[in-house]
Design a protein around this nucleic acid. Structure first.
Lengths: 371, 371
DNA sequence: ATTGAAAATTGGAGCGCTCCAAACTATATT
DNA sequence: AATATAGTTTGGAGCGCTCCAATTTTCAAT
């Protein structure tokens, strides 16, 4: 493979001149320029080796999106959340004429991708381990964390989880609900999961703050938002039955939903952490012949496409996914100092919520365990 | 930013040893290994600089997908064809623990992306310019061309365009059609387009081979497939009215479809080069109160999701898009010598095709111009 | 012709790393 | 104790390029 030097020799000029021909053609005399170009063509030389140029301090001209989990790349094109998020990032890349690298840490030591990605900056999905932040910082490249705020000097893009949750709970409160239940999810850290086992855990109402096994900032904020709204009608979040689910997937959500409905049958309004969970509660209710929204109101979170298509369509909190992607990418391209972006969310009311039945009439045979 | 050498100095060993600690830890004594690791941590050293390592001959551990056109990155997440294609490529990347870089030549000299992409290999979308092949070859990286066969020593993945077209035409033949029309598209080369203008061109039936302005291999093959099937009932492709459309987008297809229906009103079966065109003919027919399939049968190509959703659903040739992506990626990862892959296609019969009306009864007022 | 400034060209230094042949050390064998 | 063997560690070379201070060439003005 021809090198800069070979072309220089062939054209009878120095390396520096050939470099200039390719990088700043205007500084070399047209005649020389032509000679160099001819020599380059003759040798099949396509211009400076991108790899060497990069090493010398150049830019990759691409940003990376780093994700975790098996088959992550495929998922990103397949599930609606990932697709929208990436579409947002991609649109900003388009505007800047930059590329977009998708990388997962698949089958490698956790931080491998962070340490080895070749890009000018990167977007980190919700991180589970503070060591990742440390690795990212050591990498010396600009980066943005999504859905989390991992520290004061780190850029992040989040949605207003607390406000979204507050809106959702307030909606139920306004409809007249007073007996709530919540499904949440614990941080998907494999080590914790292994220790804990795969079953959801039911937390009965308590006087004091219940200790949840492990919760991430996003869930904490949403819990806080639920608490805000419930407090306005004198309901303490600690008195609300709560199920902690071990994973983000549907089967886990389903078993959590079943547990919740069985353990807290007097519930009239369920607040969740995702549409997956909301849909799971919907399904569990169907299996138990609990009518939604007549007997039970359910609110999701995220506004996945499925939320609009299920029966009944799910009331949920819509987040601006594309805009989230755009904001993250913009920070990478334009941002100098760390930025914090918090995007607004909006409650989308559909048919899975309604006023509760008149209190006292427990016609559908559901027992009251907590009052 | 700490370098290998700094760590070496701090740990009292040589560069080579530190390099080994990070690349082949098993060859260095546990005691030394620990000392080096400690020194690295103290200096915030995360391991060898990926850029330098790459320069030294390492792998990026990612392949690239190079596409053309404005807003191309965004499109890829947005349109169904791109999404499936990329999902296919991505799934193979997952299997190999590799990343996937999406790059477009947006706003740059045409071959910029090919010359500068940082990856271990790349996939080229249907190319318009042989110079791109030349540039790709000079790049010295493995690459695969999609939907085209640009030469004997270059890997490519195509579908069996000729057979697909043959199936489509044969389907119409079997239904009893004898009066056909075809819509095709010319290669979207900006220079040709500028010279040619944006209007579709109608080619009347002819004795000899008509000279089309510019056609790419894919369209040539499909035309040949149509010819194969028509020949079996004694119809020469040259006697079939044909409209040449200037671009792949819907408005262009629409004006081409209008031209075709107006110029060749006796047609009972339309063969196209894409679902976009098939849908356009459907729309143009609707505007003219031509009933599909009663008065006119239409066959698309590609089997986009829209093809199943329109009214009536479009009969079309389905191509295995995900598998196309997978095949391309596989060649990059596993292939040694150049490979040619031709994927089978399958006719999907829906409701846009039916036997022609009994010949002679021209009730819907359409004039006969060619017989 | 001579001068001086501007324009064009040169080539050494060095980016951070991995490779590898050579040197050294620890341990086993005679 | 001497030698062999395997196990470790070392440091020079060089990957291809861009930067930039120094040098050479060009050219307008005297």
């Amino acid at each position: 493979m021809a090198r800069l030097e070979d072309v220089a020799k062939a054209a009878g000029v120095s390396r520096g001149t050939v470099s200039n021909v390719f990088n700043r053609p205007e500084v070399v005399r047209p005649e020389v320029r032509k000679r160099v170009r001819r020599a380059a063509r003759a040798l099949g030389y396509n211009g400076p080796d991108p790899t060497a140029r990069l090493f010398r301090g150049g830019k990759v001209n691409a940003i990376a999106f780093i994700m975790g989990g098996d088959g992550a790349l495929f998922q990103v094109f397949t599930n609606p959340y990932g697709r929208d998020l990436l579409a947002g990032i991609a649109s900003v890349c388009d505007e800047h004429g930059a590329g977009l690298a998708l990388v997962s840490d698949l089958g490698r030591e956790k931080e491998w991708a962070i340490r080895n990605v070749i890009a000018d900056g990167f977007v980190l999905q919700r991180i589970e381990d503070l060591a990742h932040i440390e690795a990212a910082r050591n990498r010396g490249l600009p980066f943005v964390v999504l859905d989390d705020d991992p520290g004061p000097d780190i850029s992040s893009v989040q949605i207003d989880d607390r406000d979204g949750a507050r809106q959702a709970a307030e909606h139920l409160v306004r409809l007249g609900h007073r007996r709530f239940a919540i499904t949440t999810v614990l941080r998907a850290d494999p080590a914790v999961l292994r220790k804990r086992g795969g079953d959801p855990v039911f937390h009965a109402p308590a006087r004091a703050k219940r200790k949840l096994v492990e919760s991430s900032p996003v869930e904490d904020l949403r819990l806080a938002g639920y608490a805000d709204a419930l407090k306005t009608v004198g309901v303490s979040i600690n008195s609300v039955p709560l199920v902690e689910i071990v994973s983000f997937n549907t089967p886990a959500a389903l078993s959590g939903a079943a547990l919740l409905l069985d353990q807290a049958p007097e519930t009239t309004g369920v607040l969740t952490m995702s549409d997956v969970q909301g849909l799971a509660v919907l399904e569990a209710a169907r299996q138990r012949k609990i009518r939604v929204p007549h007997d039970l109101s359910i609110v999701g979170f995220d506004d996945n496409p499925e939320a609009a298509l299920c029966d009944p369509p799910l009331t949920t909190v819509a987040q601006p996914i594309i805009e989230k992607g755009r904001a993250a990418a913009r920070i990478l391209f334009e941002g100098v100092q760390p930025q914090k972006v918090v995007l607004p969310v909006k409650l989308v009311v559909r048919a899975s919520t309604a006023p509760p039945r008149r209190s006292g009439s427990t016609t559908s045979g559901r027992r009251t365990r907590f009052r």
